[in-house]
Amino acid sequence: MNGPTVRDVAQAAQVSLATVDRVLNNRGGVSAKVVDRVKAAVAQTGYVRNLAAANLSRRRVYRFCFLVPSGDTGFVALLHAALAQEQKRLMKKQILLQIVPTKAFDVEDQVAALRNLDCDAVAVMASEAPEINEEIAALHASGVRVLSLVADLPGSRRDTYVGPDNVMAGRTAAEFMGRFTGNRGTVLMIAGSLAARDHSERLLGFRMVMQERYGGCTLLPAGQGGDDADRVERIVLDAAREQPLVGVYAIGAGNRGLIRAIKTLDPKPVTIVHELTPTSREALRNGTFDLVIDQNIRAGVVAAVKIMRDLTENATPPADAGKIKLNIYSRENIQ
Rank of each mutant, 00 (worst) to 15 (best):
K92I: 00
I95Q: 00
L96C: 01
Q98F: 10
I99Y: 05
I99D: 09
P101E: 06
T102P: 08
T102G: 09
F105D: 11
D106H: 12
V107G: 06
V107F: 13
D109N: 15
D109I: 01
D109G: 15
D109T: 06
Q110K: 02
Q110T: 12
V111F: 11
V111P: 01
V111Y: 05
V111R: 02
A113F: 08
A113K: 03
A113W: 09
R115N: 09
L117M: 09
L117I: 14
C119K: 05
C119L: 06
D120Q: 07
A123E: 09
V124K: 08
V124E: 10
M125C: 11
M125K: 01
A126F: 11
A126D: 03
S127N: 05
S127F: 01
S127L: 09
E128R: 07
A129D: 15
A129T: 10
A129H: 15
P130V: 07
P130I: 09
E131H: 13
E131C: 01
E131P: 04
E131R: 15
I132S: 02
I132G: 03
E134W: 00
E135L: 13
I136H: 08
A137Q: 13
A137K: 12
A138W: 03
A138C: 02
A138S: 11
L139S: 02
L139E: 04
H140G: 00
A141P: 02
S142A: 15
G143V: 01
G143R: 04
V144L: 08
R145V: 05
L147N: 07
L147F: 13
S148Y: 07
L149K: 04
V150F: 13
A151S: 15
D152N: 15
L153H: 10
L153M: 03
L153Q: 08
G155E: 14
G155S: 12
R157C: 05
R157H: 12
R158H: 12
R158C: 12
D159E: 10
T160G: 05
Y161K: 00
G163Q: 00
G163H: 00
P164S: 14
P164V: 12
D165K: 02
N166P: 05
M168P: 00
M168L: 14
A169F: 07
R171N: 02
R171D: 00
A173S: 10
A174P: 02
E175G: 04
F176R: 13
M177L: 10
G178E: 07
R179L: 13
R179I: 14
T181F: 11
G182E: 07
T186V: 13
L188R: 05
L188H: 04
L188G: 14
M189P: 00
I190W: 06
I190F: 06
A191R: 10
A191D: 02
G192I: 01
G192T: 03
S193N: 12
L194H: 13
A195P: 00
D198Y: 14
D198C: 04
H199D: 12
H199V: 01
H199T: 00
S200M: 04
E201K: 10
R202D: 04
R202V: 07
